[in-house]
Design a protein around this nucleic acid. Structure first.
Lengths: 136, 136
DNA sequence: ATAATTGCAAATGCTTTGCTTGTGA
DNA sequence: TCACAAGCAAAGCATTTGCAATTAT
């Protein structure tokens, strides 16, 4: 159970080549939200011959397979994390860039309610809080 | 009071050149959320010599002056709208691309509360709902 | 005059893709 | 063998920027 991503690949029928395995492992043990460049750096420590194009392709492949999820926070490059067991949203520290995950069931419910009220089924959403410990 | 953007420019000391005036006027009467390309098209109907570079520069200038606000919805180019009198969030119809504005005070309060609980002051946030009338 | 603004085209920066070579079943 | 994947470099796209020409104060 240590290597969830690899297992998911098998489940979803995603062929695991050597480079995909490395990318999977790196993401498995990452507890942050690296961008593609950062991910490529980490992968390169294991095998410096893996190209960044492969990282881009793999990350997209994993996303489409529901293995990774992609975030486009304000003013930056896309970041990835493993798809979590339970949904969460993010608070971004505007001073440090630190990302904190949180869950708030009430907000989730209200979002669904708002969508319904407007005549829609909520199929997706994006909630990001930008916070500071110092600024008002 | 018909031309809020032009007035704001004067208030904020933003020089109003001929091309900026056109861009201001177009945005003033737009009730949707055009992207730069679309905005440029509309501006071109009035003066086809205005370059898209100027539109980009102006839109950024207006944003920094608090006159326009920029949105990066999923999978698209940046869109702009005039800064509204009262804050609102957006629901995007995933089938048609239509954007609906909404306000929900409860969600607003909860967001602030979540940030506080995590030890932060909420300085900004992004809430987007993606909905469909047909898909579950 | 004198500083700011425009237009154009070239440059960015992230991401994707074409194509040839490599590789696994 | 044969379809799929990787590596490289070139291409894409939205956006930004350098610079010379233009305009406003």
């Amino acid at each position: 159970m240590s290597d969830t991503i690899e297992n998911k690949c098998i489940e979803k029928g995603v062929g695991l080549t050597a480079q995909r395995k490395i990318i999977a492992q790196v993401m498995s043990k990452s507890n942050d939200h690296p961008n593609v460049n950062e991910l490529h750096k980490r992968v390169s420590l294991i095998d410096p011959k893996v190209s960044i194009a492969t990282v881009y392709r793999t990350v997209k492949l994993f996303e489409e397979a529901g293995i990774l999820s992609k975030h486009d926070f304000k003013g930056g490059k896309a970041r990835y994390e493993k798809v979590p067991d339970e949904h969460h949203d993010h608070l971004i520290d505007v001073d440090t860039g630190k990302i904190i995950e949180f869950v708030d069931e009430d907000i989730e419910k209200l979002q669904k309610k708002v969508a319904q009220k407007l005549g829609y089924n909520l199929v997706d959403h994006r909630l990001e809080l930008y916070g500071s410990k110092t600024k008002k």
